[in-house]
Amino acid sequence: MIGGFASSLINFRGPLLKRLVQDFEVFAAAPYIDDDIREKVEAIGANCISTEFERTGLNPAKDLKALLKFRKQIKEIAPDYVLAYTIKPVVFGLKAAKFKGVKRYALITGKGSGFDETNLKSKAIAKVVKGLYRDTLKSVDGVIFQNADDQAFFEQNGLLTNTVQRGVIEGTGVDMAHYRLKNEPSLPEKVKFLFIARLIKEKGIPELVEAAKLLKKKDCDFEVQLLGWVDPNPGGISQKEVDELHSSGLVNYLGTTDDVRPYIEAADVFVLPTYYNEGLPRTIQEAMAMKKPIITTDHPGCRETVEEGRNGFLIPTRDAQSLADAMERFIKEPEQVLIMGQQSHEMAKEKFDVNKINERLLKFMQLSDV
């Protein structure tokens, strides 16, 4: 298994590693694995490989050097199956693993920022990214998407050959036992809206701030909470901006955490007004498991999590007024927090249980009967 950053091996793929080690010798690779992640991966029963791929950016010299080193590491392991997720592991990791007899699978966890084509620079980057994907995916054994929109995009842009096996397995999945409430939710007196994501504009932070302003003008009593790390990438919200927002009282910045569960449990409604190229946000799945109603955008990867009016609301992207209207519904009708939250939990059990997701993944890779 090849991941894009070390902590994802545990935070996103830990349950899959636990499932795989039951039947296989497993190696987990990611850039710059530290002692903490190594200990956690090895405690599961998998082996660790530290790669040198940078998580972001395209530097041909560095990427080529990392690819050649990783190819030597893979050759020594001589794997039978390789699964890679996120762009660099898919593009470079699967290319490094191109040996006779090795079955290679790509897991597309969203298009990401590489396909933003808002200006000349981003269009040039997107052209390069498409070329890299096209070159790698033409010879893999299968491509797995987290939503149907992404599959359609890859097909329409000629990034998949007609013969390559492809399919949609919605979401990373969530461990329903791990994301379990300690106490049942109660009727909120003051509705707390929780946002969890990297602090980048494309996740809908400007719209969330504007929605808070609109609701404050109506003298609504509520709280908007932000949880997530400051991202230095283009589009990131700077620490200074975060501090100013916190000081203004429009949002309550909670910082970062290795365990989102207490924050989700303490909140009432989960909100993610994103227009980023999502796969299927894990944070939404976690919030659903913990009986929280959802406000998110009618956007690829997000629309799969909400049945309008059943467990939350879908809003247009970049629309602060629609976001404010959806938030106001919960402020004025707090009983809907409990009703829709329970429906979120039922949907999570049905659609996003990590054990069901992982079995579908293994079946796609023809590993479930091995």
Results as ranks from 00 to 15, higher is better:
residue 125 I to D: 02
residue 121 K to R: 15
residue 293 P to T: 09
residue 336 Q to D: 13
residue 146 Q to F: 08
residue 181 L to R: 12
residue 143 V to Q: 04
residue 351 K to F: 15
residue 314 L to M: 11
residue 165 Q to H: 11
residue 101 G to L: 09
residue 295 I to P: 00
residue 52 E to K: 14
residue 311 N to Q: 09
residue 258 D to K: 11
residue 69 K to V: 02
residue 142 G to E: 09
residue 211 A to R: 05
residue 122 S to N: 11
residue 269 V to E: 08
residue 166 R to V: 02
residue 146 Q to L: 15
residue 177 A to K: 05
residue 192 K to D: 11
residue 360 R to N: 13
residue 92 F to L: 15
residue 73 Q to W: 05
residue 2 I to D: 07
residue 90 V to P: 00
residue 358 N to A: 09
residue 79 P to F: 14
residue 351 K to T: 01
residue 258 D to N: 13
residue 135 D to L: 10
residue 236 G to Q: 12
residue 30 A to M: 12
residue 361 L to H: 03
residue 110 G to L: 13
residue 15 P to A: 05
residue 292 K to E: 13
residue 120 L to W: 04
residue 83 L to C: 05
residue 45 G to E: 12
residue 52 E to I: 01
residue 291 K to D: 14
residue 354 V to G: 04
residue 102 V to R: 04
residue 92 F to K: 10
residue 225 Q to I: 02
residue 328 E to D: 06
residue 266 A to G: 00
residue 222 F to Q: 01
residue 213 K to Y: 09
residue 2 I to Q: 13
residue 301 G to L: 13
residue 295 I to S: 01
residue 195 F to E: 04
residue 201 K to T: 13
residue 364 F to L: 06
residue 323 L to I: 02
residue 182 K to F: 11
residue 233 N to R: 15
residue 82 V to H: 08
residue 258 D to P: 00
residue 5 F to W: 11
residue 114 G to A: 14
residue 211 A to H: 13
residue 359 E to C: 07
residue 79 P to Q: 07
residue 186 S to H: 10
residue 348 A to S: 13
residue 208 L to S: 10
residue 14 G to L: 08
residue 52 E to A: 10
residue 222 F to G: 05
residue 326 A to W: 14
residue 253 Y to V: 05
residue 154 F to N: 04
residue 353 D to F: 09
residue 329 R to H: 12
residue 43 A to N: 15
residue 343 Q to W: 00
residue 341 G to T: 03
residue 364 F to D: 01
residue 368 S to K: 06
residue 294 I to E: 01
residue 89 P to A: 06
residue 37 I to S: 08
residue 275 Y to M: 13
residue 129 V to P: 01
